[in-house]
Design a protein around this nucleic acid. Structure first.
Lengths: 227, 227
DNA sequence: CGTGCGCTTGACTTTTTTCAATAAAGGTGG
DNA sequence: CCACCTTTATTGAAAAAAGTCAAGCGCACG
C-alpha cells in the first residue's frame, strides 16, 4: 500500500479528503525502530507527533529511583505524543517501542496548518484527546481509590471483553510490564495472581490466564472488599 | 458587563470574532449554584459543557466506600465537562461547587457546529485538553511514583510559585479537600504536616503555612527520600 | 449554650514495597 | 546440542507507608 493510502486509513484521518491526505504525505516522516528503543523522553522538545503503523509503543513515566508507570500502550493506527503539538512545550512523558515498530512522524507546523483548514480533523483529534482524558481519569481513580487486586481484576475483565467474552486469556505483555501498567511492581502482582488462583478465581499457566469465577472478578473490580 | 462580552473574555474564546460570540450568547445558559451543589455526576449523559464565571468547582471521583479523589479545581474562566462533548457518552467524573458559583452551560450541538466553522476555537480547545492531559499525567505520576510528603511538598511549592515566591502561604481550600486533591486522607495529611513542622521545613497555623526551608521542600518534591 | 464540623492524635491493621534468594525460560556462541 | 548468561518470574521475611477506628479539642453557627 502506498503511503497516502496508509495515512488515509488511520482513524485520526478518517474522512480526510484525498488532497489533504496527499499534503500530509509530503510532510510525514517514516521511521522503523527496534524493540526497546526510545522514541522520545520526558522533557524533550516536542516538534511533532507520531502514529504507530506496526508494532507497539508504551508511553510511560519514570521515577527518580527507576520505577516505571505506563500511561498507555499503543498499537497500529493510534497516535501519541500530541500534547506538545497543541500546548506547546515539552513531552510530559517518555515513549519507547515494546517490539520492532514502524512509526509515522508528523511535524507540528504542517499538521497545525492542516488542522486549521480541516474542521473534521480537528474534531477527530478532539475526540482522541477526550478519550485519552477519560482513560487517564480512570487510571487516576484506580491508583487512588482501588487496591491492586481490583485493578488486576479490571484488567482481566478488559481482556475478557476485548476477546469477545472468551475466558481463556493470553497476556500480550510481560508480567513486569503489566505490573507497571497497573501501578505496582512484579512481586506484588505475582503474589496477587497466586492468591487469586488459590481462591479459585483464575488459573494461570505462564502468560495464559483462565477466568474461573467471572462474577467474583467483577465484584473485586468494583473496588469490592475482601480478597 | 453584557453576556456577549463576558463570553468573549473567556480564554477558550480568545480571538473569537464578535458575530460568533453573539451566536454563543444565543445558545448559552447561565446558572447560579450554592456552595456544595452537584453540577453533574459521573455517568450522567453529557449534553454540553460548562465554564466557571465566578466561584470554584471541583471535578472528582468517588470510590465505592465514599473516598474522594479530586481531579482538578476550576476557577473563573476555566471550562470543565468537555470530554463528553467530543467523545460522546457520559461524564467520566462528577463536579460540584466549592462555593457559591456562577456557571455558563454550552449545549453540545451548537458548540460543535461553531467549532466546525471556527478553526481557531478548535485549536484553543485542543490546547486546553492538552494541558489537562499534561496535568493528569503529572497526577498519575504523583499517585503512582511518589509518596504523600513529596506530593504535599510539590503542592506547597506550587502555591509558592503562584504567589510569586512568597513563603507565606494561605490554603484556599480545607485540609480535607487538600488531602483529597493529593490522593490521601485528612489523617495522613495532618500527620505529615506535623512531621514537616517538627523538622523545621514549615510552620503551620491554621490555614496559613510558612515555608522555612525551601530547598528541603524542593528535594522532597523530587520524590526524594527520607522524611 | 449546645451541636456539629474540621482538624488532630494515638493505637492498630492492612496493603504494598524492599531486599534477597531461587527457579525457570530463552537465546547465543562454542 | 549443550553450557552459559541474561531476563523473567516467584517466594519469603521484614520494613515502611498509608489507612482505619476511635477519641478529643476548638471554634463557628444556629
Amino acid at each position: 500500500m502506498d503511503l497516502t493510502s496508509t495515512i488515509a486509513a488511520i482513524p485520526l484521518f478518517e474522512g480526510l479528503p484525498r488532497p489533504q491526505a496527499e499534503d500530509l504525505t509530503m510532510i510525514v516522516l517514516e521511521q522503523v525502530l527496534r524493540k526497546g528503543q526510545i522514541v522520545f523522553s520526558e522533557g524533550d522538545e516536542g516538534i511533532g507527533f507520531y502514529v504507530v503503523l506496526a508494532g507497539r509503543v508504551k508511553v510511560f513515566k519514570l521515577s527518580m529511583d527507576g520505577k516505571e508507570q505506563i500511561l498507555h500502550i499503543l498499537g497500529p493506527g493510534e497516535p501519541f505524543g500530541e500534547v506538545p503539538v497543541f500546548s506547546g512545550q515539552k513531552f510530559p512523558a517518555s515513549a519507547a517501542t515494546m517490539e520492532e515498530s514502524r512509526l509515522l512522524f508528523f511535524p507540528r507546523d504542517g499538521f497545525v496548518a492542516l488542522i486549521r483548514r480541516t474542521p473534521e480533523l480537528a474534531l477527530n483529534m478532539l475526540a482522541i484527546l477526550s478519550r485519552r482524558l477519560r482513560r487517564f481519569a480512570s487510571l487516576i481513580e484506580d491508583l487512588s481509590l482501588k487496591e491492586v487486586p481490583a485493578r488486576l481484576s479490571a484488567y482481566l475483565l478488559y481482556l475478557n471483553n476485548a476477546n469477545r467474552g472468551s475466558r481463556d486469556l493470553t497476556l500480550d505483555i510481560s508480567k513486569a510490564q503489566l505490573a507497571s501498567l497497573l501501578g505496582t511492581i512484579p512481586e506484588t502482582l505475582s503474589r496477587i495472581l497466586t492468591k487469586m488462583s488459590k481462591q479459585g478465581l483464575i488459573q494461570t499457566e505462564g502468560p495464559r490466564i483462565r477466568i474461573l469465577d467471572l462474577v467474583a472478578l467483577e465484584d473485586l473490580a468494583e473496588a469490592g472488599g475482601g480478597l
